[in-house]
Design a protein around this nucleic acid. Structure first.
Lengths: 175, 175
DNA sequence: GTCTATACTTGGATAGAC
DNA sequence: GTCTATCCAAGTATAGAC
């Protein structure tokens, strides 16, 4: 996961990946059919983590929206840490989305963003009408990923931090 | 440029690039020292275009901000067309920003975003206090690139279109 | 300036011993 | 389940004829 995040899909060789795992290159093929299957497994691991520890936070309806968004932001800060390669889902999407044929692991990327959008939409419905909530969730996910991009361009985590703050601010208006 | 946008930097081979240019692979080395120099030249061509035809639109102070932002949006729609590979600057940044050593063409990417941010900040100063203008420019560039990402993830130009509309709407409040 | 031919390296993947 | 050895294709880059 670390290698793919830092070096990208195509630039990560099976040798790089094997070294990071502390095994011989050939041994990778005992567990994974090929490089694409390995990437799929990595992306599925990220998705599983988010499904277990991040998205559910949004649906804890007995807690306040403010508290829930703060927890989610904390998780996103770790999951997308810019100094560890940023967002693997976004990096991968931009690197392979136009390839023909498209690698099948793109479906995992889509599932990730869909669930992230749904989770945020659910939270925003507490402070906005349903339609506006969906639109605002889309805006916020885009703004967050874009802020992460700027952080990587300028090697400055502040852009991403400000993106997280703007998301947080939505739930703590003035008061 | 087309090949790099669609396939990414590392996945584009000199053979791919030569074919797209209609010359033999070896001939590419007559014009460019290596693949990295070729990528630099491509990025510089994009930057030059933006410096000549896009950014200056923001500074035509005799025209209304609304008119200027509409022209800029029109240019961005073409320059970042999602079905042609999206934003080469963003794609490239995410693909190579964590490599060590970092390719020197990253400086061109930084220059592009810096000038885009400056241009948007200048325009926003017509409707916001200076400090808020800078902050809002950062937010809008991030939101736009993020919207483009979502368009590529879902193969749906609508996300990017809505991003452009939200930018446009900033300059035409209610009225 | 453009081509053919080719050197040299790396990359993905397999075979088979242990 | 892990290793060594190896195959073959693709990749970057160069040499040299025309």
């Amino acid at each position: 996961m670390r290698v793919f995040r830092l070096q990208g899909y195509h630039h990560s060789s099976m040798a790089d990946l094997a070294r990071a795992c502390g095994v011989q290159k050939a041994h990778m093929y005992y567990y994974f059919e090929n490089k694409e299957a390995l990437m799929r497994a990595v992306l599925e691991a990220v998705l599983s983590y988010a499904e277990a520890r991040v998205f559910p936070l949004a649906y804890e309806d007995e807690r306040s929206p403010e508290a829930r968004i703060e927890d989610i932001i904390g998780q996103l800060r770790r999951l997308l840490a810019m100094d560890q390669g940023g967002c693997l889902m976004a990096n991968t999407a931009l690197e392979v989305s136009h390839l023909q044929p498209a690698p099948d692991f793109l479906a995992v990327v889509r599932a990730f963003f869909e669930q992230l959008l749904d989770a945020l939409t659910h939270l925003l419905k507490h402070i906005l009408p349903p339609e506006a909530a969906q639109s605002q969730a889309e805006t916020q996910v885009a703004a967050l990923e874009g802020a992460l991009l700027l952080s990587q361009v300028y090697e400055d985590p502040a852009y991403f931090e400000r993106g997280l703050e703007r998301l947080s601010a939505l739930f703590t208006p003035i008061a």
